[in-house]
Design a protein around this nucleic acid. Structure first.
Lengths: 338, 338
DNA sequence: CACTGGTCTGCAATCGATTGCAAACAAATT
DNA sequence: AATTTGTTTGCAATCGATTGCAGACCAGTG
């Protein structure tokens, strides 16, 4: 009889306003700047809000305010548990600031070139945290009001993006020094993909302190499988050529390598010393517990979150934050046999 | 002299239209329904699009179309690598359908009650995938046009939400049968949190086949630490009361338990048999390799994605999809000693 | 030549919240 | 009483893309 516009399933700002007997502007103000509204009005509005079960429409707010309230993290591979703790720290820090974390996979290769394209867009994210060092930066011809981008853990060679990362070179130095101090003179290194920036930085650290000691490289890619393959290669080596100390660029490779040798009756650290990189939780729960270089993952996540929040707020930031690695001395390293 | 409105940093639809000499509607149609536009016009528009570097504004489109193009996955803890592979499968499947996956953490406890509230909102997500069985469902008073919700892996007791999950009860039966067939008569079970639905389902399976055999429970919560604690408890038991077969409700607990015993000189499977649950990658790369119940994580993720896509499209779906577990027979189980 | 049918295109309304501006009113000052 | 100052509130424009409707145009037919 009178209901001109049948109420849509969901209450809008104007519905709340009508019920409270005020204008939509007032309701909006109560919700985002309560101090601006007189006490009695405010209460009426609040009552109307809960009576209608009103919930804000994010699309509308985003359109109007030209911001989204979300930060996008681009990871090379969601399936890699290494990122889990980092994202965890990131998410919590962002939540404290009222931002949501959207995690997206660059789907290694397939969409790598378009991933950044798709998300580097003010209508999708207020900021971007890159965890993939191999994305390609879109050459943007027009409209330079792109959301800020920072890197975490990895970084993009040739782009001067601010970022948070471990001092990988120093981490590698610490690992190598540890093995050398134990008396090892021939060290095997299980690396990452040659194109990976982490691999490159750590190799620099290795060379920094290797000096005259003998080095044997085993190809790797940070995965368990690579560690297992390296173990097979080691076993295939003539006994005299087998390095009695191994520095693996990831804990997963270190674990699988150790298991591979054990299967052949080679014990750690009795016969071979092993040191990993990352300090994944599993490492300390093995027997023997894995000696490794600690990478404070939650911290890195938190700091990356802080960094992007600063950039979003337009605050000046340090170009690069280096996080210090630490030697976790456990049970898999010892002096060489004999 | 003429530029009335100085161009905002970024090209809008109307800017493209002006350059192409057509209306905004036409540009919109070229972008979303090209067949509707005549060939020459289309080409002019496409040229203008790339000339301006135009990129759509998602907020505006979402507002108008009343959809977001994203699916939100709510996980209890982003730091838990168990979810990584599931999210990976999910993300890929959703990407194929043109949806983005937004992963958010319910931050166990703190925001658990508000997490679903915050995201169950048509202006934020077209669909929700719950991976946390302990969230509380908001009692929604008004406006029932909420986005569809499904569960994956876990489920919410008392809510008839559709979902994809492993047949946990059957998985537990398979594990128990395996141990019993080896001749074990006293079995230790390292469980999950009592309130967890997975724990409950698996306990049902354990009881289904335990029969008259003796059971000893060890409290747990799926973490490595819990496995280590269980090992200590086992070692504190009088020798006659020590179960010589252990069924752990997660591979992480199984691994840590095994390592804990080994540290005390107790070998697996010579002295104690161990079977885990999940089939995490690390398990198969240990020595001895962990016997376990396989949970096809990527598959579960993929199927959950399909399910939510079906629900979004309004297609009818099965209320519950049970995924079948499988015994991964490896090296940590054997007949009891003597 | 008028009329029908079809294909393209543009106009203008719409999605829902925010905010600059100014009106309305109350209190304080001269 | 008139003016100033300050507080609340509403009006109306705005963010940018989409789409129902109708007008414009062209070819084909009677």
């Amino acid at each position: 009889m009178d209901k001109r516009a049948p109420p849509p399933g969901r209450a809008r700002l104007s519905d709340v306003a009508r019920l409270a007997g005020v204008s939509a502007s007032t309701v909006s103000r109560v919700l985002s700047n309560p101090a601006m509204v007189a006490e009695p009005t405010r209460e009426a509005v609040i009552a109307a809000v809960s009576a209608t079960g009103y919930r804000m429409n994010h699309a509308a707010r985003n359109l109007r305010k030209q911001r989204t309230g979300t930060v996008v993290a681009l990871v090379p591979n969601l399936g890699n548990p290494f990122f889990a703790k980092i994202l965890d720290g990131m998410g919590r820090e962002l939540a404290r600031a009222g931002y949501d974390l959207l995690v997206a996979d660059t789907l290694e290769g397939e969409g790598r070139d378009t991933a950044l394209q798709r998300f580097m867009d003010p209508s999708r994210a207020d900021g971007i945290i890159l965890l993939d060092g191999l994305v390609t930066m879109p050459g943007d011809p027009i409209g330079c009001d792109l959301p800020p981008v920072i890197t975490a853990c990895e970084w993009v060679e040739g782009l001067a993006l601010p970022g948070v990362m471990l001092d990988n070179q120093e981490g590698a130095r610490i690992a190598m020094r540890h093995l050398l101090q134990l008396g090892h003179t021939h060290i095997g290194v299980i690396g990452g993909p040659p194109a990976n920036v982490l691999h490159q930085a750590r190799m620099r650290g290795v060379r920094d302190v290797a000096g005259a000691s003998r080095l044997t490289m085993f190809p790797g890619d940070f995965t368990l499988q690579a560690g297992q393959d390296a173990a097979r290669m080691w076993l295939d080596l003539p006994v005299a050529d087998r390095p009695r100390a191994i520095f693996a660029f990831s804990d997963e490779m270190a674990c699988a390598f150790m298991a591979g040798l054990l299967r052949a009756g080679i014990h750690t650290p009795r016969d071979v010393s092993i040191i990993g990189f990352d300090d994944i939780e599993m490492g300390s729960h093995l027997t023997p517990a894995l000696t490794t270089i600690r990478q404070p993952k939650r911290d890195i996540g938190r700091q990356a979150a802080q960094l992007i929040l600063d950039r979003i707020a337009g605050r000046d930031i340090m170009p690069v934050t280096l996080v210090q690695p630490r030697l976790m001395l456990r049970e898999t390293t010892a002096a060489p046999p004999e």
